[in-house]
């Protein structure tokens, strides 16, 4: 069964990606996690996302498209990336999600994917 692990980052988390002091540790952890998923043969797909300041939102109002700068909701944590994994059940998915490198304020969400057929 496919689950998506959603990584919600804080502003500090996004900033760490390009910060000289923190950059190496940030990426090393994420890449090691990705490697572990692949080695366990549970990795299906995924992507890291640019920060919310690069996001563009489209709303539909009265048949018109409204294109706006910014993410769909202004929350403290923003989607920073996701992994799709293939495991037997929710407990296995939660185990993998819990292994994502911890950072202050980071929130990891697990959702079952809709069946493909």
């Amino acid at each position: 069964m496919h689950y998506t692990i959603l990584i919600h980052e804080t502003a500090e988390g996004f900033a760490a990606r390009s910060d000289n002091q923190q950059r190496d540790a940030y990426w090393a952890g994420t890449m090691a996690y990705l490697r572990a998923l692949k080695e366990a043969q549970v990795f299906v797909g995924g992507a890291g996302l640019q920060g919310p300041e690069t996001s563009t939102t489209i709303r539909f109002e009265q048949g018109r498209q409204l294109i706006q700068d910014g993410p769909f909701a202004e929350t403290k944590e923003q989607l920073g990336g996701y992994f799709i994994i293939d495991v037997a059940n929710l407990d296995a998915a939660l185990d993998w999600a819990a292994r994502f490198p911890q950072r202050p304020g980071l929130v990891v969400e697990v959702r079952p994917n809709l069946p493909n057929d």
């Binding site: 069964m1 037997a88 059940n89 929710l90 407990d91 079952p112």
Partner: peptide, 11 residues
């Protein structure tokens, strides 16, 4: 059902 929570004795 949808999240497939396992019917098992927890670890």
């Amino acid at each position: 059902r949808l999240a497939r929570i396992p019917f098992d004795i927890p670890e």
